[in-house]
Structure formats: C-alpha cells, structure tokens
C-alpha cells in the first residue's frame, strides 16, 4: 500500500483533516461497494450503506482506537449496516456484473459464461445472509478465516461452519456446472 497507513490517516481525520478522510475513503470505497452490493443484492442500497459507514468514520474519528486493523473495523461497520438493512427488506438477486463483450471471444463460450454467472449469482442470493457475507469476505477480500471472524464478530470455528454450509449449498445448487467436462 502506497502512501500513509490507515492508522496515520485516522489520526489526522480525528483532527478534522478532510483531505485525509477523502484519501481513506477512496482507498476503501470500491471494495466496500462491492461487498455491500453482493451482500444486499442492490446497487442503490449499497451506495447508501457505504456512504453511511464512511460518515460514521468521519463523525466518530476522535473516539476510534487502533485496537483492531481499520479494514477489519470498517468492513464490520459496513456488514452490520447491510445485515440491519436486510432485516427490513428482502433480497433481490442482482444480475451479475456484465463484462464488455470481447469481439475476439467465441460467442457461444461467452453465452455459456454469462449463463453460469447468472446461476452463481442466484445460488449466492439463496444463501443465508451471514453465509453469503462469509463467502464474499473470503473470496472478494481474500480474508483469512480469522480476519473474517473478526469482521463478522464471531469465532474462527463459527466462520468455518458458515463457509462449510455455504460451500455445500453452492455445490448442490451448481451441481450441473461443476460436473467434470466430458
């Protein structure tokens, strides 16, 4: 990571440094948006949630203590806001992110990929919220089970249980896609 550390930036933000806040916000916005979008299944809600989380960072910067990594703490705030929002509104599966069509690619292969993407999106949408959150943190952020546990506010064995259940459910839902090619 280039530039000042998250902790240095938070120290400056606690002094009212708006430039430091924007630097930190830019650093985390894209991935936080991706996390919220995949947990909520809704782009507009994801933007609202991440905006709210960043606002809390700004407002409460004077009270933050570096007892945990900023990334862990921030994602925990984002995830808790997402899970609270989910309790109030049902999940609607988001169409998977469409990549621009590669003119050189085999069109049949492209169609197959898009169909598979939609199946994966639907299978993830069917997971319980915390299982989906564990999967997204693990695969999108590359977090270890220990880090994921810290974000979800649970134990490592709790996260492992979530991941086992999620993988089993996904394997069942995507059975035909996972079969070996003949």
């Amino acid at each position: 990571m280039d530039g000042p550390s998250d902790e240095d930036l938070m120290a400056r933000i606690s002094q009212g440094d708006e430039w430091a806040f924007r630097l930190l916000a830019r650093r985390y916005l894209p991935r936080a948006l991706g996390l919220a979008r995949r947990v909520l299944g809704n782009e507009a809600d994801a933007e609202e949630i991440v905006q709210e989380a960043l606002l809390r960072v700004w407002l409460n910067a004077t009270r933050w203590r570096p007892t945990a990594a900023f990334r862990t703490w921030f994602y925990r705030v984002v995830l808790n806001l997402c899970l609270n929002r989910k309790r109030r509104a049902p999940f609607a599966a988001l169409d998977s992110v469409e990549e621009p069509v590669d003119p050189a690619a085999d069109p049949l292969r492209e169609i197959e990929h898009r169909q598979t993407d939609r199946l994966v999106a639907a299978a993830l949408a069917d997971l319980p919220d915390r299982q989906r959150a564990a999967i997204v943190l693990s695969y999108q952020e590359g977090m270890s089970n220990a880090e994921t546990a810290a974000v979800l506010g649970t134990s490592v064995s709790g996260v492992e249980t979530l991941l086992v259940r999620a993988r089993r459910a996904l394997r069942k839902a995507l059975g035909s896609v996972l079969e070996p090619e003949r």
Partner: peptide, 14 residues
C-alpha cells in the same frame, strides 16, 4: 467452485 465464486466476486467497475 472456487473459480466460479471468485469470478462472481471479481472487482467490478465501481
């Protein structure tokens, strides 16, 4: 399975 999930979770255009 890992590849399918990772593909879904890849960085989008945010």
């Amino acid at each position: 399975l890992d590849a399918l999930i990772a593909r879904h979770c890849r960085d989008g255009d945010e």
